[in-house]
Design a binder for these strands. Structure first.
Lengths: 205, 205
DNA sequence: GTCTATACATCGATAGAC
DNA sequence: GTCTATCGATGTATAGAC
C-alpha cells in the first residue's frame, strides 16, 4: 500500500493567502520595485514556483492584492447616497467611515497612497484616480447639498470640498507616519468641527 | 606639436548638473529603486564612470539631490519667527510661502512626499521627519499664539493645527495628481478662509 | 502543487587605457 | 575626466522531476 505523501510536497491551501499577506507587507514597507520575489516567498515560507503557480507574475500579485483590498472600499463608497439628514452630519459620517476602513487596511492604504501621489515604482497600471474620485465626488455632492439647502454658506464649492478632504487626508497621513500617536476618530471629529464651523451659515458653538 | 583634444574626451562642466536633473526627474517619475543608473546617464548624455566620478554612488546622487533642494526650504522655514501681526495673517503667509516653494520644486517635493508617506524604496536614509516637523511646529506655534491672544477660540491645539496643515497638504497633493488643474495661491487662500472662520472667535465674513 | 536547478537579463560599480 | 569593457551579484521567471 502507498505511504501517505511526505510533508514537503503536499498541497498547502493557505500558501496563497500567506503569499498575499507577505507581498502586501513588503510592497508597503519597501515599495514594489525594491521588493524581490525571493523575499516574498521566504516570508511566506514557500518556494518561487508556488508564487508563479498561484499568480501569473509579480505584477499579478500586486494587482490581486490591490484589487482585493479595494472591494470593501468601493462597496462602502457606493453606500453613501444623500439622505434628508443635515449635510454636515452626512459629511462627518462619510469621513469617519472611510477613516475606520483606512485604519483596518492601513498597510494597503499606505501602498495606495505612495503609488498614487508618488512615483510609479515600476508597478503595473491601476486606476487609482477612479478610487480617489469616489471619495472626492461623494464629499463634493454633500457639500453642494449643504449649500443648496442653506445649511452652508454660499461660497467656493471646490475650496469647501478641499477643506473637508484636507481634514480627512491629514488624519490618515498623520497615522501613517506616527502610528504610535494616531489622530483617531475623536481627533478627526474635532478637526471636522473646525471645518464645519467655517462652512455653516450659523456659526453656533 | 600637440593637437587639440578630441571632443569625446574633453571635460564637460555641465555634466554634473545634467546628471542631477536627470536623476531627480527619473527618481520622481519611477521611484528610487525602479530607476537604473543606465537610464540616468543615458538621459544626461554621459557614460557611467562620469556619474561615479561626480557622485560616489547611486545613493550619493539621491542624497545630493535631496539635500540641495532642501536648503532653500530650510532657510524659508527659519524665517518664520512670530511677529505682532494677527496670527491668521502669519499662518496664511507661512502656508502661501511654502506653497510657492512647493510649486517651484514640484518634482523634488513629489519625491519627498512619496518616500516620506510611502515605502522606503530602498533609498538611503534621510531625515524626512525633521524637514516635515519644521512646518508642523511653525504652524503649531502660530496657532498657539492666536489662542493666547484671544484671536482664536480656545480649543484643541492639535486639531486646529491639523486643520491648517490639512488645507496646505490637500492643495499640494491636488497639484501633484492634477497639475493641469492646480489649486493655486487663490484656491489655497480660499480654503484657508474657511479654516480661519472656524478658528476665530469673531466669525466675521 | 511543490520541489531543485537553472536560464537569461539587468543591476550597481569598477579596472585600466587615454 | 571620460572612455570601453567587464565583473560579480541579483533580478524575474521557468523547465522538468515528483
Amino acid at each position: 500500500m502507498s505511504h501517505t505523501a511526505s510533508p514537503p510536497l503536499t498541497p498547502d491551501p493557505a500558501a496563497r493567502e500567506r503569499l498575499l499577506r507577505a507581498a502586501i507587507r513588503l510592497f508597503t514597507q519597501k515599495g514594489y520595485a525594491a521588493t524581490s520575489v525571493r523575499e516574498i516567498v521566504e516570508e511566506a515560507g514557500v518556494t518561487k514556483p508556488v508564487l508563479y503557480y498561484h499568480f501569473k507574475s509579480k505584477e499579478g500579485m500586486y494587482l490581486t492584492a490591490l484589487r482585493d483590498g479595494m472591494e470593501e472600499y468601493q462597496e462602502l463608497m457606493a453606500s453613501f447616497s444623500p439622505t434628508d439628514e443635515p449635510a454636515d452630519l452626512q459629511l462627518r459620517r462619510a469621513c469617519l467611515s472611510v477613516y475606520d476602513l483606512f485604519i483596518r487596511y492601513m498597510d494597503l492604504m499606505r501602498l495606495f497612497h505612495s503609488v498614487f501621489y508618488g512615483p510609479q515604482q515600476g508597478a503595473p497600471h491601476f486606476d487609482y484616480h477612479a478610487v480617489h474620485n469616489l471619495l472626492v465626488e461623494t464629499l463634493r455632492r454633500l457639500v453642494r447639498l449643504g449649500m443648496d439647502r442653506g445649511e452652508f454658506k454660499d461660497g467656493d464649492e471646490r475650496a469647501m470640498t478641499l477643506a473637508v478632504l484636507g481634514a480627512f487626508n491629514i488624519a490618515t497621513e498623520n497615522d501613517m507616519i506616527h502610528p504610535e500617536c494616531p489622530v483617531g476618530r475623536e481627533g478627526l471629529d474635532r478637526t471636522l468641527d473646525i471645518i464645519f464651523r467655517g462652512l455653516k451659515t450659523t456659526a453656533n458653538s
